[in-house]
Amino acid sequence: MASENESPYNPNGIGSWLVCKTCGTQFPTDDKHQVTTCFICDDPRQYVPPSGQSFVSLDVLRSSGHRNIFTPIAADPERLIAINTQPKVAIGQRAILVRTPQGNVLWDCITLLDDETIVKIKELGGLKAIVISHPHYYSTHLEWARAFDCPVYLSKEDRVWLAQQDASRQKLITENETQLLGTTILKLGGHFPGSLVMLFEGRLLIADTFFATPSGLGNYDADAVGAPRKKPPGISSFAFMWSYPNMIPLAPHALMHMWDILKKYEFSSTHGAFPGMDIVDTPTGMKQRVLESMQIQIRYSGYEAHAMLEEVIT
């Protein structure tokens, strides 16, 4: 790992640098004797596949038919545009281009950056900043920052997970609330100590700081014959996990910390880390979904007298 004041970035040669096939993190070398394992995937919040640790490079990805697909998000198609790599690379997350009146912000990052992507984003107004929710999406963020000449905002608590460091580009978030170009960045913690969400005009971009469940994504507007109905009671919309691939849930005190920050804000939709992970509701309904999901997780974890179960929307 580079020191804080060094930048290993080499704009003439980084296409050959090693990229973890499982999580998409880029390492500042093309020498497989220097990087034999990915320290992010060795952590129990991620995983090493049965085939073991393996690496690819941006040059290989660019030459093997991978490309980034730009998809307007239905809830706000003019201002929120998802960017997802096909065929899937690593975890398969999407980045979201947030088009604010003060300039574009890229929420989260993906590994593949190519000429076509750079041209498309510049046509849409370029980037003023990049904000990354947590270390699983650090990917190739310094290359993105250099390509668009912008800073990258990361939580200070999670800096130990950086495979590359560049103090001139990486800006460390220290507060629970940070205002940036018309967005509000909230540090909720939980999944990682510094896990972030971003609020923009009632749209809450959650990455996998918390995660939409199948029942949360369900359509409860009508029954099988088209009759109107309400969402059945006691159904969760979100899961809150320390490790998603290894299915290790967050403890109640972590959920309480997250709620104490998030309950101060209004939002009418959530937009998760992967395509199709969008939930739209009324502001009250959306907030109620989050609280109920937290309470369900706490209750069924065996904490039937926990203070969070007494929380209500006010």
Score class of each variant (00 low, 15 high):
A163M: 12
E304S: 09
G24L: 08
V160G: 07
Y153P: 02
P8L: 13
I298W: 02
E201W: 00
L172H: 07
L180C: 05
H257L: 09
W17P: 12
I206A: 01
Q46N: 11
N10D: 15
T71C: 04
F274M: 10
R62K: 11
M286S: 12
R229C: 13
S236E: 15
E311W: 09
P275E: 07
N10G: 09
N104S: 05
P87C: 08
P135L: 09
L113N: 05
A74Y: 00
M1D: 08
A2P: 15
I279H: 00
K171F: 08
L309F: 10
L250C: 07
D223P: 04
H141M: 15
Q102K: 14
E310L: 14
L250Y: 00
L196H: 03
C150S: 06
A251M: 11
I173C: 00
E6P: 03
V197I: 07
N12Q: 14
D278T: 15
H191V: 12
E4S: 10
V98F: 01
L113P: 06
Q179C: 11
F148R: 05
I130V: 09
F210M: 04
Q170N: 03
L80A: 01
Y9D: 09
W259R: 03
H136E: 11
E201G: 03
G302I: 14
I185E: 05
I313M: 08
V19T: 07
S195L: 12
A2R: 13
A207F: 10
D260E: 15
T314Q: 15
L205S: 03
L162Y: 06
T71G: 01
